[in-house]
């Protein structure tokens, strides 16, 4: 039996909003450690990895590890039926062919129950090496979202370069060009507004903005986003997931293969 209860059901709604347009079908791997998912987009250019720790749930029971394969747009449609303040409980019996979602409104007697069909998916897992990166940047997630959205009006790709204590996002296209330069901020008054840059070596790499704009759909999950880059390896864009109390619940990480000069 698998059962996971989340009082802040809105977190699950936000996670689905952040992955459903990138990946259509994926499997949740549920174990005593928590729920995780790894899936590539159909063109195999990007990958999303989600981790929700067992102790982040308000109730969590997983007698034996289960893989819940499902259509994410179906799950997302069902989650839209839950209110933002609802408690969400996921239930799956061992060897069942569906998952049950129970939504409970706070301070009300209303309960709704939905079922989503499970699928047998041929999941391919990629081994992601845990390597140090040349550049790590932490910046406000809404700022990253705006930069990616603005630059997509100029061109299809963004060139990210980092030197000393600044990071530069540049795009060019038929209409002209645009650059956004961010410098490391000194103030720690408002950590969520800060930009911090840690650099081992200067870097310059280009990425498709279409994917970065997909990743930015995770913005409501976290006030800060972390970008990790190294020469000739995929970019990592990470949003940590915290609950209202600020406790660490897990993360959503996106990996994006670079564009290269032919």
């Amino acid at each position: 039996m698998f059962e996971a209860k989340l009082i802040q059901g809105a977190i699950l709604k936000k996670i689905l909003d952040a992955i459903k347009d990138l990946v259509n079908e994926a499997s949740w791997d549920c174990s005593s450690q928590g729920m995780s998912l790894q899936a590539m987009d159909t063109s195999h250019v990007s990958l999303v990895a989600v981790q929700m720790k067992a102790d982040g749930f308000d109730k969590y029971r997983c007698d034996r590890s289960v893989t819940l394969g499902m259509n994410l747009s179906s799950l997302s449609k069902i989650l839209k039926c839950a209110g933002n303040d609802d408690t969400i409980t996921l239930k799956a019996p061992d060897d069942g062919d569906k998952i049950t979602l129970v939504f409970e409104a706070k301070n009300e007697s209303e309960t709704s129950e939905y079922e989503v069909k499970l699928m047998n998916l041929d999941s391919e897992y990629l081994g992601i090496p845990d390597t140090p990166y040349s550049v790590n940047v932490k910046m406000p997630s809404h700022k990253f979202q705006r930069i990616c959205r603005d630059l997509q009006q100029i061109g299809d790709a963004v060139t990210i370069s980092c030197a000393k204590d600044s990071i530069r996002f540049a795009a060019k296209g038929d209409l002209g060009s645009g650059t956004v330069n961010l410098c490391q901020t000194a103030s720690a008054d408002k950590p969520e507004d800060s930009v911090s840059i840690s650099m081992q070596e200067p870097i310059i790499q280009s990425f498709a903005l279409k994917y970065l704009n997909h990743f930015a759909k995770a913005t409501p999950l976290s006030p800060q986003v972390s970008l990790s880059l190294s020469p000739d390896v995929p970019l990592v864009v990470e949003y940590s997931i915290t609950d209202d109390d600020g406790s660490d619940f897990g993360y959503i990480r996106y990996y994006l293969a670079p564009k290269i000069d032919e």
Partner: peptide, 13 residues
């Protein structure tokens, strides 16, 4: 510029 795929960096486990 050409787009590379992730599978050229990460291998199936």
């Amino acid at each position: 510029m050409s787009q590379r795929t992730l599978t050229s960096f990460f291998k199936p486990t």
